[in-house]
Design a binder for these strands. Structure first.
Lengths: 189, 189
DNA sequence: AATAATCCAACATCATGTTGTACAATATGA
DNA sequence: TCATATTGTACAACATGATGTTGGATTATT
């Protein structure tokens, strides 16, 4: 890598880092380019050499956090007792939790949840694609239901100050997926 | 209602309507006050007589869409076979689907999903609050899991061009909640 | 007629995105 | 190897557009 490329990469990263710090503090629409470059130590104009606008920075970050098909583990037989490769999702979330919890949180980007779900869906679909007993249309609803639930519970988990342990959380999720929500809650008969 | 009040209410509503039309077309941060008032037929300055800024309009709309405790049906025994008052949620979503699908969608407000979930949680919590066999901490995770899943599947449903019928969707949700995701999908043994 | 509200025009301020330029790093040709 | 041409990085300055505020004109209410 030439010195030029190093400088370029470093500057880009400095801008990204400064943006992320601010993004964790406030909504993206309240972040002026000026604040980013001030924090990163550059002229405002320099920002535009690297990004189109503030949203472009976010997109750059998001794309680096969406797993590619190659990164996702290849699907063979259902993993463990779960049947759906959701351990994969748990791992993915934990690896990037710092970013995911922000992007999927109240000040995050609603489109990121969709991107994430859509990046995972093909892998799960493959499990069922040549199984004639599966209703394809229904499967799509189940995918959406499940991934939404997973994202919801993981984000919630991450926000808790006295969170469940990994093991307890995983065990709970397994239970919920295997026998449903209702069975986990006793009702007066 | 005096004529004054009528005019005030009408103007406020006109601004809200104009905002909503634009909000359905693009992200909120790309909506200048000018565009709103142009569409509504007022001077830009008039906007500031009614709202603090563009986000204030959104907040106003959101608050009118969050059910109050009184609006939510009183909890007695679990409704139907579901055990959780989720029919309530389905009804709520359908009544406001035009707004919900936008606010909960990719160009929506991530904070709205939280507001909505938090408005419903107390009602469900009450069902279990004096049941000593329920793990309170775990219940919170189950609530988050379930409500996230419900919001996810309803939003997905609404986006579909050839969507399932109401009945099929409800039946699917019931199945998923009663016996879990896994049981709904056959695996090669 | 006096008061209070609705609405608007004009202003100062701030953020945006672009352009021209200084300076540093690299490539080229004797 | 050394001088020169070329490219890339960063910046200051500019034009444009959006923001939020203020003072005044107009219309409804008392």
């Amino acid at each position: 890598m030439s010195k030029r490329d190093e400088i370029t990469a470093q500057t880009r990263q400095n801008i990204i880092d400064a943006f992320w710090t601010l993004y964790c503090e406030k909504r993206i629409e309240k972040i002026p380019v000026r604040d980013i470059t001030d924090k990163a130590g550059y002229n405002r104009g320099t920002f535009y050499e690297y990004f189109v606008d503030v949203y472009d920075v976010l997109e750059y970050i998001e794309n680096s956090l969406i797993p590619t098909l190659e990164e996702l583990p290849p699907v063979s037989t259902p993993t463990g007792t779960l049947g759906m490769p959701l351990d994969m999702f748990l791992e993915l979330y934990q690896k990037n939790s710092r970013f995911y919890s922000q992007l999927l949180g109240d000040n995050g980007d609603p489109a990121f949840a969709s991107k994430l779900k859509n990046s995972i869906k093909p892998t799960i679909r493959k499990l069922f694609e040549d199984n004639p007993t599966v209703d394809i249309k229904e499967l799509e609803y189940i995918l959406e239901y499940t991934l939404s639930a997973m994202i919801g519970i993981m984000s919630f988990w991450f926000k808790q100050s006295d969170a469940l342990t990994n093991e307890k959380l995983f065990e709970l999720i397994h239970r919920l997926m295997e026998s449903g929500v209702i069975k986990q809650l006793p009702f007066k008969e």
